[in-house]
Write a protein that binds this DNA or RNA. Structure first.
Lengths: 148, 148
DNA sequence: TTAGATGCAAACGATTTGCGCGGAA
DNA sequence: TTCCGCGCAAATCGTTTGCATCTAA
């Protein structure tokens, strides 16, 4: 069963409320954006999000990027940098995840492990002068399929 | 003094030899590329590398990107994905480094800590079916200057 | 009514690709 | 002499920005 530190289950409404509380307007693009991210619950690029069948409207790229910027600013989503050209985003508030990525085919798997850096993170927080620290841990390897 | 697991000190000649052994030609662009990476010994983007004073020639972007691709393929350099638009590269063969990055100004600091994921990494290697695994660990926070 | 969102269009910057030439082996 | 690597040029693709219009509050 693993180490899923369960957090409060997220719902669209709760998310939209949080957005509202952060001063954002309850717009259709916002709702679609969050719905996709919530349904998929994995890191996605903006082109992926816009192309998702659940994304019910057509929406200008500019809108999407501005939306992502606002959501990230208000800490509702988080960017994660795999080695792909496009940035990935995921909802905050879920359990922290680490990833295992195939450097050939780019497939992304979620690791079901206890993240071993919490200690270190606290340590850094007190000694570095940085605040609001969080981390990103990815493993890159060659998956069985790509090894031929 | 920290945890610098010292590796064999690298020299341009050793690096060029390694390239040669990998079947690459000893070209001027290759030498400049490696010299910059060696001198700076930090993750750099390709535009940064090409713009470095030590990069003695002018060289077409295409050449640079193809060079990087070859070097990465032969495992002489390694890509690392900070949250910047451009990919960063660094020489392999140095000690493994983890980073602390300011999410506002983007400054990158090298962490002088024992990396706490080696165990986990071995673990994943035996259970995941992935091979040649390596990891990337970055901490993101707000640095003192950006906190105002 | 009004500040915040959106669409449109155009600009940007990193990265990629096809092609013919020049140089390292 | 032979390929490999290079410069040139053009195309891709993710992302950003200015501006006029629209809309949620």
């Amino acid at each position: 069963m693993g180490h899923t530190h369960s957090h409060t289950p997220q719902t669209i409404d709760a998310l939209l409320d949080a957005c509202r509380a952060a001063g954002m307007r309850r717009t259709m693009a916002l709702r679609c954006f969050l719905e996709v991210l919530l349904e998929e619950s994995r890191p996605m690029t903006l082109p992926e999000i816009a192309g998702h069948p659940r994304f019910g409207i057509t929406c200008d790229p500019a809108t999407l990027y501005r939306l992502a910027a606002r959501l990230e600013e208000h800490r509702l989503i988080r960017q994660i940098g795999f080695h792909s050209r496009a940035a990935h985003y995921l909802l905050r508030g879920g359990a922290h995840q680490d990833y295992l990525i195939c450097r050939d085919c780019g497939s992304i798997a979620v690791l079901d492990v206890e993240c071993p850096v919490h200690e270190l993170e606290k340590n850094i927080e007190t000694t570095s002068g940085f605040s609001d620290i969080e981390h990103e841990l990815e493993f890159y390897g060659t998956c069985r399929a790509c090894r031929n």
